[in-house]
Amino acid sequence: MVTFLFTLLILIPIAIAIDVSEKIDNFLEHPNLGISEVLNDYYINFIIYYSNTFMPLALFIAVILFTSKLSSNTEIIAITNAKVSFTRFLYPYFIGASLVTLLSLAMNHYVVPKSSKIRKGFEKKYINSSKQSNALKYVSNFSLQLTDSTYIFIRSFNTANNMGYDFNSETYDGIKLISKLSSDNIMYNPKDSTFTLTGWRKRLIYEKRDRIFSGNKLDTVFNFSTKDLVYKSAFAQEMPSGELLKYINISKKRGVKNLNAYLVEFYKRTSLPIASYILTIIAVGLSFRKKRGGTGVNLAIGVGIMFLYVFFMKVGEVLGSVAGVDSLAYVWIPNIIFGVVAIYLYLNGRK
């Protein structure tokens, strides 16, 4: 565990140094931005996020370093001659991996989302370019199912000033349209969560005749907010797991077609900590035998495997976010692939 903490304390300053070199110009562009605000709002939360991300990888490197040292000192030979099985030899490693996994799970599901919300708020205010913010500013041709019978359609909406145009709300009885509310413009009022419709028209459809109402201005409420209009994976990182799962379920009922970016974030919060067990077995399997070249060879192989794992993890996240695929399967692809390698090394180690 000491080696694990030492490895983590090496990785985090490197990440901070790279990030500072990339963002120093953004910080200097804002003369009112103080060092305390940069440290408290950004880098403390930056450390929380990347410490949690690096935990399984730091554990992997720590196990390689620690086991290689045992091997080079021929301590493993003595343990083997004492008739200690390979499975029993792994017990202390799994205790350490369990501690890291439990800590990482708690961080992933509760602490990191709240921390990310503060960090991303800072990035949005001081770092992100206007082009990136504009990508979230305008929504066009948006549709949403509010209830089993009510649907809304918006031609265009500006989330910066909470105004849109060409709004329609339709209510159905089965497949039969029973009412339709339209307006030329719609404005959201954040203070009381109401909507103001201007140039509105309401049509009630009966068996033999229709009734039509109209007016210049109408204040009303709908079961959605401007947050529901923009679907962005970054928002998922800011929600604790309970809130995220609730949001996914509500969005499914509303007929949102592609929620895979949110599902990927939800599944990843469990898959990455569980990887600690898999990477621990691989690390022990690679380094428990004494090799010519010692720790350096084991560490080089381990770093290569670590980068392969990160590569497969990122590929799985990208592919899992595509509409119409099984996000759970793609998120767990790295664990499945490296799990097979871990099983092979475990069975080979028992011999």
Rank of each mutant, 00 (worst) to 15 (best):
E265C: 00
V84M: 13
D166E: 12
Y93H: 12
V139Y: 10
R209M: 11
L347K: 13
P56Y: 08
P113R: 04
S214P: 10
Y206R: 12
A300E: 07
K191W: 12
E22R: 08
T147V: 00
P113C: 10
N158M: 13
F288R: 05
I248L: 07
E207R: 13
S287G: 06
I333D: 03
S287N: 05
L39M: 12
R201D: 13
I250C: 03
L9F: 14
L102W: 00
Y50N: 11
L5F: 12
K227E: 14
Y267L: 01
Y42N: 01
S72H: 03
S68A: 14
L146P: 05
L33V: 10
N348F: 12
K232S: 14
D228I: 05
Q145W: 03
E238F: 05
L5N: 02
L33F: 10
G296P: 00
Y262N: 02
I14H: 09
Q132K: 14
V341D: 03
M313P: 01
A275H: 00
R292H: 05
L5W: 09
N162D: 05
I278H: 00
F312G: 09
G294W: 05
N52C: 07
F86V: 02
L39D: 01
D19A: 07
Y231R: 14
S21F: 06
I35V: 13
P334G: 02
G294C: 08
I79G: 09
T270A: 11
G293S: 00
L5P: 04
I212W: 04
E207F: 02
F222E: 06
I205P: 04
L181M: 10
I281C: 03
A82W: 11
A58N: 11
M239H: 05
S72D: 10
S182K: 04
I95C: 08
F157H: 06
V297L: 15
L59P: 01
S21R: 05
I76E: 04
V20I: 15
M107E: 02
I48W: 08
L11K: 00
